[in-house]
């Protein structure tokens, strides 16, 4: 790769510098104050500069010294796991605990290269039952098992405990 001797160091150096610039620019909107009475921006700016310097050192080291190549990236795991975490956050209120959990577990099981449908389904079932027992029965977390989105179509009232935050969509809450 030409003059880049250690891609890992070069990349991490660049990453640190980029983050330092982002944080540093953010501090520009904040009052600096003086050394005696430091404003909210004083210490963060100091740190941003410091991180930029460290990033530069790492970058230069990466150009000077030989190092390991970067290894391949686990795209499948990265994308799937991030996606199912985001899904969990987005769906827990409208869909409710049980369906959200089931989908999260099943999709995350897809991330493994050793994915097999039967085992994935088995894990899903076991996890849903287990989590229900531990978190709902055992610890009494205030999560609705089925969210308002599930009850709307069926015409049934949602099961208790209902703690959905959109009263207009939920029969029990409307009362």
């Amino acid at each position: 790769m030409g003059f880049i001797r250690n891609p890992k160091d070069v990349l991490s150096g660049l990453l640190f510098i980029a983050l330092a610039v982002i944080f540093g620019l953010q501090t520009q909107q904040l009052a600096m104050g003086t050394a005696v009475r430091m404003g909210p921006g004083y210490f963060p700016l100091l740190l941003s500069v410091l991180m930029g310097i460290f990033g530069l050192i790492v970058l230069i080291n990466g150009l000077r010294f030989e190092g390991d190549r970067t290894t391949s990236i686990a795209w499948r795991a990265l994308i799937l796991l991030t996606a199912c975490t985001v899904f969990f956050g987005a769906a827990i209120r409208p869909l409710g605990f049980l369906p959200t959990l089931a989908i999260t577990v099943f999709v995350s099981a897809l991330a493994s290269q050793k994915f097999r449908l039967t085992t994935a389904l088995a894990i899903t079932v076991v996890m849903v039952v287990f989590c229900w027992a531990v978190f709902i029965l055992g610890l009494g977390l205030p999560l609705s098992l089925l969210g308002p989105a599930c009850c709307r179509g069926s015409g049934r009232s949602p099961p208790s405990p209902c703690c959905c935050r959109s009263p207009s969509a939920c029969r029990r809450c409307r009362r």
């Binding site: 796991l81 199912c84 975490t85 985001v86 969990f88 956050g89 987005a90 827990i92 209120r93 959990l101 999260t104 577990v105 099943f106 995350s108 099981a109 991330a111 493994s112 290269q113 050793k114 994915f115 085992t119 994935a120 894990i123 899903t124 996890m127 287990f130 989590c131 978190f135 977390l141 205030p142 999560l143």
Partner: peptide, 27 residues
């Protein structure tokens, strides 16, 4: 491990969400 890790993912999600009941924390 490929049987274990979906469980860990699920625990992480539930755990983080239940701290503040805040979906933003999950993101």
């Amino acid at each position: 491990y490929h049987i274990l890790f979906p469980a860990i993912v699920a625990f992480c999600c539930i755990g983080v969400y239940s701290v503040n009941n805040n979906t933003f924390d999950v993101y």
